[in-house]
Amino acid sequence: MQMNRWRADAQALLFLLPFLVVYVVFTIWPMIKGLEMSFYKWTLIKKMKYVGLDNYNQMLQDTAFWSAVWHSLLFVILSTPAMIVLAIVLALIANRRSRLQKFYRSVFFLPSILSVAVASFLGLFIFQPYTGLLNTLLHLIGLLPDNKEIFWLNETNLAWIAVTLLTLWWTVGFNFILYLSAMQDIPEDVYEAARLDGANDSQIFWRITLPMLSGITKTITMLQIIASFKVFLQIYIMTGGGPLDQTRPIIQYIWQTGFRENNLGYASAMSYMLFVILLVLSAFQYWLNNRKGA
């Protein structure tokens, strides 16, 4: 009996091995290497010299680092609640019994299949002045006078709105699918009982649907916060982090430091700081969820 289990484990390991090797070589090993790098002055070419905690010290005093962290956080604040509300609304629409049910499902999910580069370039075409979709629409309905243009990507506040809207459109599909499947898991008899008791639609939504979704909401919130914190490419493509680095997120700053300024040591130190920030956020959330669950 014992022997059989051991055999089963060995078999499982055999099947896991290919993935495990790749995972160790390309994920675990770079993680350890990154930690080592963060204590050195380390260029793209080679290890230069041991500097102890210098990189971390520099980071604490680097205003560019903290403002980049703030920009990522700002994006989390802008995108996460909007993402969740929109996903629920879309899921409610697609969950209604309707002939268009299948249509809704595919349309809401479709943008998610685009790669970040494609989505961001569409974003550029939507928000660019003179010929962009949005400004053209605003001209058409007369909200914007003919001789005026809104420079969405050149003003800090507008650029944040543009990037957030683009990200919403692009990635809400994933959360939408999660919500939709959770909604379909809610047993029909609960609704039936509620209706028999005379509950109206809004009561049903607030008292039944929403509470029954709380589990998935917690998961989505956590995933979304992490995903939003890691925002990079859509901002990089649409605004380049400008104007004056006012929309530059932390990942872009790390990438610039490592691969543009040739300073992998400092970039690694910042990566680890970001790791700690995300770890603390996730731990806090985990604790919050568990406390409520108990």
Partner: peptide, 25 residues
């Protein structure tokens, strides 16, 4: 099981970040 779930999440966070930053190396 839950504890393990948290650990997995932590590793995921770390690995996703690193893959964002160590690509060209």
């Amino acid at each position: 099981k839950r504890r393990f779930g948290f650990l997995v999440a932590a590793v995921l966070v770390l690995s996703m970040m690193l893959s964002a930053c160590s690509g060209g190396n």
